[in-house]
């Protein structure tokens, strides 16, 4: 399933639920919670996280305690606000599309 254009909201939502996590865990959570439907090229998630950090929605730090250096990502207060706003917009968008195309059951019966 193509998630282009929606990756920001998905990443913000995963970070809001999971708390401070490294990139690999973000990708795993994205895949598990979508039951494998959002199978994005994993490497593209890191530039997206970096971009969210430049926008001030995410902060990150190196985790030194592990054998391999890992970058831990965490949502900022602005990130929480952005996630809420994007979520609201998404639900509104879905409702409007739903109103146009009709409920799934009606389509299936037709």
């Amino acid at each position: 399933m193509d998630v282009r254009g929606h990756l920001d909201l998905l990443l913000l939502a995963v970070l809001a639920e999971a708390g401070p996590v490294h990139g690999y865990a973000v990708i795993t959570a994205l895949r598990d919670r979508s039951e494998g439907a959002f199978d994005v090229p994993e490497g593209t998630v890191y530039p997206a996280l970096h971009r969210l950090e430049r926008a001030g929605l995410v902060v990150s730090r190196w985790e030194q305690a592990t054998p391999r250096r890992r970058r831990i990502y965490e949502l900022t207060h602005d990130g929480q606000l952005a996630r809420t706003a994007k979520q609201r917009e998404w639900r509104s968008f879905v409702n409007r599309v739903q109103a146009v195309i009709g409920p799934a059951t009606a389509q299936a019966m037709a």
Binding site: G5, H6, L7, D8, L9, T44, P47, A48, R51, K86, E89, W90, S92, F93
Partner: peptide, 9 residues
């Protein structure tokens, strides 16, 4: 919403 982020990612 469909253009939440149309940047280079």
């Amino acid at each position: 919403v469909p253009a939440l982020s149309t940047g280079p990612h």
